[in-house]
Design a protein around this nucleic acid. Structure first.
Length: 214
DNA sequence: GAGGAGATCGTCT
DNA sequence: GACGATCTCCTCT
C-alpha cells in the first residue's frame, strides 16, 4: 500500500484546542511511523482526554515535573511515559504553551505494516482475534509502533520531517461513542473516553464500551 | 468469556 | 517506599 495517502499532516492549530474537542476529531485519523523503507500506519479508533491541572486523573494534576513537562508545552508534541514496569503509553499535548492538557491513544486499527507490527509485538497473526491484539490497548499500540520514551518523548508530531506523525486521509467516522475512562481511580466517572462505535479494534470489554450519560 | 493476580520499574513523596 | 492512564497468564464457569 502506498503511503502517499497519509501525507496530509494535522496542523499545530488542530491540537491547540480543548482536548475533548480534539479527541472527537482525532478519531478516524491515521497514526504513521516512517522507518527507512517501511511505513506503519493505523487508524485511531479510541482515545481519552486528560484535561490538565483541573483533572485529578491527569499526570499534570500535581503540577509540572520533569516527567510531564511536554503536557505543559506547546500543542502537537508526543508525551510518552513508562508505566507498570512494562509498558509505554503515547499521548499528544493539547492547548496553548503553558496550559496542560493531552490525549491518550488507546486503540488503533492497523492499515499498513502489519507484519512489522506483529514482529515488534512478538505475535503471529492466525486470526482476526490475533490482529486485534496488535494495537488494541495503549501498551500494545506503543509496542507495535516501537514507541519509547527515549525515542519519541517530546517529538513534534506536526513536523513534515518527523518519523512519527498523524495524518488525515479523508476518512469520515460514522458514529462516535463516549464512555468513562479506563484504568483510573480518580475522576473515573467522567465521560472522557471517545471511540468509533462498533469498531472491532477498540480495547476493553463490551460492558466497558457502553456509553455513559454526559 | 470473565475475573484475579503477578510482573516490573520509573516517578514522586 | 508506595503507587500506577497495562498486559498476560492462569483458573473458573
Amino acid at each position: 500500500m502506498s503511503s502517499a495517502r497519509w501525507q496530509k499532516l494535522l496542523s499545530r492549530e488542530f491540537y491547540d484546542r480543548d482536548p475533548r474537542r480534539v479527541c472527537r476529531e482525532l478519531l478516524g485519523k491515521v497514526l504513521v511511523r516512517k522507518e527507512r523503507s517501511q511505513v506503519l500506519a493505523a487508524r485511531i479508533v479510541e482515545v481519552e482526554a486528560y484535561l490538565g491541572e483541573d483533572d485529578p486523573a491527569a499526570h499534570s494534576f500535581a503540577g509540572r515535573t520533569l516527567r510531564n513537562a511536554v503536557l505543559f508545552g506547546p500543542p502537537g508534541y508526543a508525551y510518552v511515559y513508562f508505566i507498570y514496569g512494562n509498558h509505554y503509553c503515547l499521548n499528544v499535548s493539547c492547548l496553548p504553551d503553558g496550559v496542560a492538557g493531552g490525549i491518550l491513544f488507546r486503540a488503533l486499527e492497523p492499515l499498513a505494516g502489519v507484519e512489522k507490527m506483529a514482529r515488534s509485538r512478538n505475535v503471529t497473526i492466525n486470526s482476526a482475534r490475533d490482529l486485534r491484539k496488535l494495537t488494541s490497548g495503549p501498551g500494545r499500540l506503543a509496542e507495535a509502533f516501537c514507541i519509547t520514551r527515549e525515542r519519541d518523548n517530546g517529538k513534534d508530531l506536526t513536523s513534515p520531517r518527523a518519523d512519527l506523525f498523524i495524518a488525515d486521509d479523508g476518512y469520515r467516522v460514522p458514529h462516535v461513542l463516549t464512555t468513562a475512562r479506563i484504568g483510573i481511580t480518580k475522576a473515573a466517572a467522567l465521560p472522557l473516553r471517545y471511540l468509533i462505535a462498533g469498531n472491532e479494534f477498540v480495547s476493553g470489554t463490551k460492558i466497558r464500551n457502553l456509553p455513559v450519560a454526559s
